[in-house]
C-alpha cells in the first residue's frame, strides 16, 4: 500500500509521511455507534496535515481564521488538488475509485460556485428534477432560463447548492455555503442540509459563523495557522 500511494501522489510534491491505515469497518468504540464513512489520515497539502474520521449521518463544523487552509482541506478531500495521505470512503481507498466517481460521492461545493453554461438550466441534467430544490431555496422555476450573468451572488450560491444536492452525494464538503445569504435563506439551507444528514449524508461544513457552527455541527474542528486541526465537542 505504501508503494502504491507514493507512486500515485508523491512525484510532484514535497515528501510527506504516508501511513498504513488499518481497515476501520464498523467502529463500535464510537460514542454514537455510527459507522465511519469517511477516513482522512495524514492528509497533506502545502502546510496542512490533518487526520479525522467522519461518521455517516454526521455534520462536522470546520472553523479557523481566513487563509488558514480550510478550502484547501476540503478541496484535497475531494481530490481537486494534488495531495498526500490516505482518504477512504467506506473503507475504499480514494485512489481505487475513478476520480469523477469519487467526486460524485464526495462532493465539494465552493463558496463562489463556477458556471460553464450560459443559462441556469444548462448546469442541471434535467431542470424539471431540480425545480423542487430550487423552489425551496426561494427561486422561481422560471429561473432555469435566466442567464448566469444576471444572477446575484446569493442566487448563485443557492443555485450552486441545488446543483450539488442533485447528485445525492454520500459526503458533502460545504465551503461557507451561506456566506452570501440573508438569515432566512441561511435557515432554509441549514434545514435542507439537516434533512440530508438525518438521511445518512455526511457533511463537513466550513463556516466563519460560530453560532452557525454550533447549530449545524455535532463536532467542531478548529484549524490553526500551522495547518493542524483540534477537535471540540459541541
Amino acid at each position: 500500500m505504501l508503494g502504491r500511494d507514493s507512486r500515485l501522489t508523491g512525484r510532484l510534491y514535497a515528501p510527506v509521511q504516508v501511513r498504513v491505515v488499518i481497515e476501520f469497518g464498523l467502529c463500535k468504540a464510537l460514542p454514537n455507534r455510527k459507522r465511519v464513512m469517511l477516513t482522512v489520515q495524514a492528509l497533506t497539502r502545502l502546510h496542512i496535515s490533518v487526520s479525522f474520521d467522519l461518521n455517516d449521518g454526521e455534520c462536522i463544523a470546520l472553523q479557523g481564521p481566513s487563509g488558514v487552509g480550510k478550502s484547501l482541506l476540503l478541496r484535497s478531500i475531494a481530490d481537486l488538488d494534488p495531495n498526500e495521505g490516505t482518504v477512504k470512503l467506506d473503507g475504499t481507498l480514494r485512489e481505487a475509485v475513478p476520480a469523477p466517481l469519487w467526486r460524485k460521492q464526495v462532493t465539494y461545493l465552493a463558496a463562489e460556485p463556477g458556471w460553464w453554461a450560459d443559462t441556469v438550466q444548462g448546469h442541471f441534467g434535467r431542470w424539471e428534477h431540480a425545480i423542487p430544490l430550487v423552489s425551496r431555496l426561494g427561486l422561481p422555476p422560471s429561473c432555469g432560463t435566466w442567464p448566469i450573468q444576471r444572477l446575484s451572488t446569493g442566487e448563485r450560491q443557492r443555485l450552486g447548492l441545488a446543483r450539488a444536492l442533485m447528485l445525492q452525494s454520500r459526503v458533502l464538503l460545504l465551503d461557507e455555503p451561506t456566506s452570501a445569504l440573508d438569515s432566512k435563506s441561511t435557515a432554509t439551507v441549514e434545514s435542507m442540509i439537516a434533512e440530508r444528514v438525518s438521511g445518512g449524508t455526511s457533511v463537513v461544513w466550513s463556516t466563519h459563523d460560530s453560532t452557525q457552527a454550533q447549530r449545524v455541527g455535532s463536532r467542531l474542528l478548529v484549524m490553526s495557522s500551522a495547518g493542524r486541526i483540534e477537535e471540540h465537542q459541541l
Binding site: A78, T107, Y108, E112
Partner: peptide, 22 residues
C-alpha cells in the same frame, strides 16, 4: 480565466474532457 467553471464541473463528477470542452 475559466478555472472556477472548470473546477465546478470537475467537483460535480465531470471528467477532465467534459470540464475542458468549452
Amino acid at each position: 480565466r475559466e478555472r472556477a467553471a472548470i473546477e465546478a464541473c470537475l467537483a460535480l463528477g465531470g471528467t477532465r474532457y467534459q470540464a475542458l470542452l468549452p
